[in-house]
Structure formats: structure tokens, C-alpha cells
Deep mutational scan, measured.
Amino acid sequence: QIFVKTLMGKTITLEVELSDTIDNVKAKIQDKEGIPPDQQRLIFAGKQLEDGRTLSDYNIQKESTLHLVL
């Protein structure tokens, strides 16, 4: 699992595989929060994550926290 922190300070827990693409992750956030993926920007280690890449491409591990910017 990974964590996604919103600017409102809310933390969302997502069940993911490290082979999941950023697209997949955004879809899971949409399922939980109702935010359309095209409005989501995910940040990790100061970098904006690109849709076609996977979590492992960015060296994101289990229990990592991503930041969601709208």
C-alpha cells in the first residue's frame, strides 16, 4: 500500500502494486475520492509523476507517501 496526502491534510491509503502506472493510481484515487484523474497531479520527492510511468520507475516503495495537488 501507499499513502496519498491531500493539501487539505487528509491521507488516503491505496492498495497498489509497484508495477501499477500513475494512471492506475489516479483511477484508484477517483474511486475513493471522486476526483477526476485529469484534475489530479501527483508529486513524489518534489517531482510531478507522469501518467504512463509506473510507481517503480520513480523508486516509490510500499508505505511511501505521495502528495496530491489539484
Rank of each mutant, 00 (worst) to 15 (best):
E63S: 09
Y58I: 11
K62Y: 13
A27I: 07
G34N: 10
V69S: 04
P36H: 04
G52S: 09
S56A: 05
D57G: 13
Q39K: 14
K10S: 06
K5M: 13
L42A: 00
S56C: 11
A27H: 08
P37W: 10
L14Q: 01
D38L: 04
P37D: 13
G46P: 02
L55F: 06
S19L: 07
L49I: 13
L7I: 14
K10G: 03
I43F: 14
E50V: 11
V16D: 01
I29C: 07
V25Y: 00
T65G: 13
E50F: 06
V69E: 15
V25E: 00
I22E: 01
G46L: 03
I43S: 15
K32S: 11
Y58D: 06
K32N: 10
I43P: 01
D31N: 04
V25N: 00
L14T: 06
T6N: 08
M8A: 12
T65R: 09
E63N: 10
M8C: 14
T54Y: 07
D20C: 07
E50S: 10
I22N: 02
I60G: 01
N59D: 12
N59F: 08
D20H: 06
V25K: 00
I22M: 02
L7G: 15
E17Y: 05
K28Q: 06
I12A: 06
I2E: 00
N24W: 03
S56R: 03
I2T: 01
D51K: 03
T65Y: 07
I29Y: 02
D20Q: 06
G46V: 03
K10T: 05
D57T: 12
R53N: 07
Q61C: 10
M8H: 13
T6M: 04
Q30P: 11
P37N: 11
T21P: 04
L55T: 01
I35A: 08
L42E: 01
G9Q: 11
L55V: 03
K10E: 10
K62R: 08
G9N: 12
V4K: 00
D23A: 03
E50P: 11
T13P: 11
Q40F: 03
L66G: 01
Q30V: 11
L14G: 00
L55A: 04
Q40T: 08
V16L: 03
K28C: 12
D31Q: 07
K62F: 09
A27E: 14
L7Y: 15
F44C: 10
A45M: 13
I2C: 01
Q30Y: 03
K5W: 11
D31P: 14
D23V: 06
L55I: 09
A45Q: 11
S56N: 08
N24A: 11
D57F: 13
V4H: 00
T54W: 04
I2A: 01
S56P: 07
G46Y: 02
G34L: 05
K10Y: 04
G9F: 04
L70W: 14
D38F: 02
V16I: 09
G46Q: 13
R41I: 13
I2K: 00
D51Q: 02
A45Y: 09
V69A: 12
T54K: 11
E50T: 09
I22S: 10
V69N: 13
K26I: 12
R41D: 15
I35R: 05
K5D: 15
V25L: 02
R53C: 03
